[in-house]
Amino acid sequence: MTNTKRAASAILSTLLGIAVVGAVGITLHTLSADALRGKLVATKSADTITVDGKNYPKASVTMGVYPDRATAVEHGSKPTKKDYVQYGPSNHVVLPAHTYVTMTLHVYDSGDKLNNPYFGKVVGTIGGTINIDGVDVSSVAPDAVQHTFTLHGLPTSSQDPLFVNVPLPHVEVNDKDEFIPTKDPGTNNKGHTVVFSFLTGGKGEYVFNCEYPCGDGTYANFGAAMGAYGYMSGKVTVA
């Protein structure tokens, strides 16, 4: 074998190796892109509102928490992820920067006790309150919570801090299935509607997750849906 041929073989094989690793990377990246089921972009409105002497444009977004039988993917053996409860329609929420965001959550789940009662308090909303079916409250009893919407992010120089904790009151029913809606939030009126507002800062990437232990009997009930990305967790982009 000549030197040239050997060198060519070495270089081509190395490039091939890099290409194989690259292909694995692209595959993983593609899988990751699907994990949150698209984007949910907040609707901007023409109105503005004044908070603490400053003018903010308004935007609104509507989400729900429901065991999503319509979009869930069968996974592994029994128990299928079909039974996992999740935020939706997407777990990637896009909000405008420096805006007064009003979020409406339609929630249909039963619930119980929080691992940490702190998350029964409302934190980070306008006025420190949330509106549950027309009533303003500043906290929900820590043993009557179904889920929480807890929005946070890395404290970093490249973005403004944003922390919101909204406890969602449980639905008092024995037969949970009665309240499992279709894919579209808002079509079932037996649950609660929770409305709250908060101010976004500059651009940034944040995450949200649920602090109610809804993980199917696993340790601290934080396994299953809680530990799987894109069910009770997701991300929030302020753009």
Binding site: G25, L28, L31, S32, S158, G230
Partner: peptide, 18 residues
């Protein structure tokens, strides 16, 4: 893959669970 994810802040390459 790990280093590609950490090449820049913002978790732009893969999900936290992957």
């Amino acid at each position: 893959m790990i280093r590609t994810q950490l090449a820049q802040p913002g978790a732009k390459f893969i999900t936290p669970s992957i």
